[in-house]
C-alpha cells in the first residue's frame, strides 16, 4: 500500500513504543480501515484522516497495550514470590549462623547490591507504562533473579554439607522461582 504521510507518521508513533509484531497487526488494521474509506470514494488524504481518527489517539493504544504487557504481569508475580523465597533463605542463613562463614565483606556487599538491583528492575517493569522499557527491565530482572537463586543454592549447598529440612525448603523455593522466571521470559522472548 502506498500510504499517505499521515498514516506512516501515525504508525511511526506506535512503532517507537511497541514491539514489531503488535505494530504489524495494527498496520494491517489501519490499512484495512484506510482501504474501506477509499472504497467509499473518499480522497486519499481524507481517507487517511478518517482512518487515523477512527483508530484513535496512538498514546491511548500504547497505554492499552501496556496494561496487557506480559512483562508487567510477570514482574508482579516475581515480586510477590520475593518475600517467600527471601524468608526461606533468611531462615537457612540464621539457623546455620551464616555470619560466621568465611565470606569476604566485598562479596556480601556485592550480593546485597545485586539483590537490590533485581528488586529495582522488577519494580520498574511492574510499574512503568512504556512497553519496551518494561520488557527490557523484566528481562534483566529475571536473569538477575535466576543468577541470585543459582548462587544461593550452590553457595549454601557447599557451605552446609548436610541438608536440613530448612535448606531443602529454600532450595525448592528457589528452584520453583527459576522455573517461574523461565515461564515469565518465554512470552517476552518469543515476540
Amino acid at each position: 500500500m502506498s500510504e499517505p504521510r499521515l498514516i506512516s507518521d501515525y504508525l511511526a508513533v506506535l512503532a517507537a513504543q511497541l514491539p514489531a509484531q503488535i505494530v504489524e497487526e495494527l498496520t494491517d488494521g489501519l490499512a484495512e480501515t484506510y482501504q474501506s474509506y477509499l472504497r467509499q470514494d473518499l480522497a486519499p488524504d481524507l481517507a487517511a484522516g478518517s482512518a487515523v481518527a477512527e483508530f484513535g489517539d496512538p498514546h491511548v493504544i500504547v497505554s492499552a497495550y501496556a496494561r496487557v504487557n506480559p512483562a508487567r504481569r510477570g514482574a508482579r508475580r516475581l515480586l510477590l514470590t520475593g518475600p517467600v523465597v527471601g524468608g526461606c533463605w533468611a531462615t537457612v542463613l540464621i539457623t546455620s549462623r551464616a555470619w560466621a562463614w568465611p565470606v569476604p565483606l566485598a562479596a556480601r556487599i556485592l550480593l546485597g547490591l545485586a539483590l537490590l538491583t533485581v528488586i529495582g528492575l522488577l519494580a520498574t517493569a511492574a510499574l512503568v507504562t512504556r512497553y519496551r522499557l518494561a520488557a527490557r527491565a523484566v528481562l534483566a530482572g529475571c536473569l538477575g533473579a535466576a543468577a541470585l537463586d543459582t548462587i544461593m543454592i550452590t553457595g549454601v549447598m557447599l557451605a552446609i554439607p548436610s541438608m536440613t529440612w530448612v535448606t531443602t525448603g529454600a532450595v525448592a523455593a528457589s528452584t520453583a522461582r527459576i522455573a517461574l522466571t523461565v515461564q515469565t521470559l518465554r512470552p517476552i522472548l518469543t515476540r
Partner: peptide, 15 residues
C-alpha cells in the same frame, strides 16, 4: 469504539 483499542483487548483475551 476507537478501532485501535480493539487490538489490545483481543491480545488480553488471547492471554
Amino acid at each position: 469504539l476507537p478501532t485501535g483499542t480493539i487490538y489490545p483487548a483481543l491480545r488480553r483475551l488471547e492471554q
